[in-house]
Nucleic acid binder design. Structure first.
Lengths: 142, 142
DNA sequence: TTAATAGTATTAATGTAATAGTACATTGAC
DNA sequence: GTCAATGTACTATTACATTAATACTATTAA
């Protein structure tokens, strides 16, 4: 599991960890029952104090997203609310609203914005590839 | 000038103020030489302590974005780096990259993403606001 | 059974955020 | 000159984030 923390953003480290784990669960990138890194391991990886990771795990357990078994490890709860398709759309939509608002502040018109979106989406489209490929080449994109 | 602060995001209030003012200057929504609200006014408007606003103004002055004249007020510096058109595109592009990455995590495909963008852009288009359009009608001119 | 690994709990110390209150200096309007 | 409005500066206090150092309990595996 990969987590990144920024000390310059102003967001407390334990919150950054919580938000990222929460998002990974929402997105289904952390499956129910999956084991999380031990507190000490993640702390060492992020070069922070184990207490800070423990705080994040504890908060998420209280939220019902994780459960801890002493001596065994910390796992994603079976009841963890993986977002529905609709939930993901809503979440993405909110972020998109912010971005559209920013584009207006920047005086970047709808057409230009659309071009920017298209530029970034084009390489993701499976259709119209340059070279014909077998349908089994590219099952998953990570 | 409108500033919003959130106490739940974890970001320090003075940083939120700094970031928003900085963004307004970048976007050109705060002109060079324009006067900002007095410390006490903004503090009252946001229901926070004047010291917190003062901290934000002081930091931004140190950054060279503002300058203060005691007894007179606080103003946008003449040297404040308003972003160029290209700079705005780059900034917006970075944010857009993040969003596209999120859409992939959420397994929201390019087509669906494009629809979401179009839904939000449609009301901004000056012409033909009544007829709903497919995002694929549009022709892009490069 | 024993050792290693895991989470839990506690205490202390440091630094920062934010509030509160006060006092002072400068500017501009009258 | 007077006065109000502004920014500046300082102290004190509270709360929180983070680190640090331990000690403890539960689980797992050799």
């Amino acid at each position: 599991m990969i987590v990144h923390v920024s000390t310059s953003s102003g967001v407390p480290i334990y919150l950054q960890i919580e938000q990222q784990i929460e998002q990974m669960i929402s997105a289904g990138r952390l499956a129910r029952g999956e084991e999380l890194p031990p507190i000490r391991s993640l702390a060492q990886q992020l070069v922070i104090n184990p207490n800070t990771v423990a705080r994040a795990y504890r908060d998420l357990e209280q939220k019902g997203l994780l459960f801890s078994k002493q001596g065994s490890g910390t796992f994603v709860a079976e009841s963890a609310p993986r977002l529905s398709d609709e939930g993901r759309r809503v979440l993405l939509g909110e972020r998109l609203d912010e971005l559209v608002a920013l584009s207006q502040q920047f005086s970047i018109g709808p057409d230009e914005f659309m071009v920017m979106v298209d530029e970034r989406l084009r390489p993701l489209r499976p259709s119209e590839p340059e070279t014909p490929r077998s349908p089994f080449d590219d099952e998953f994109i990570d």
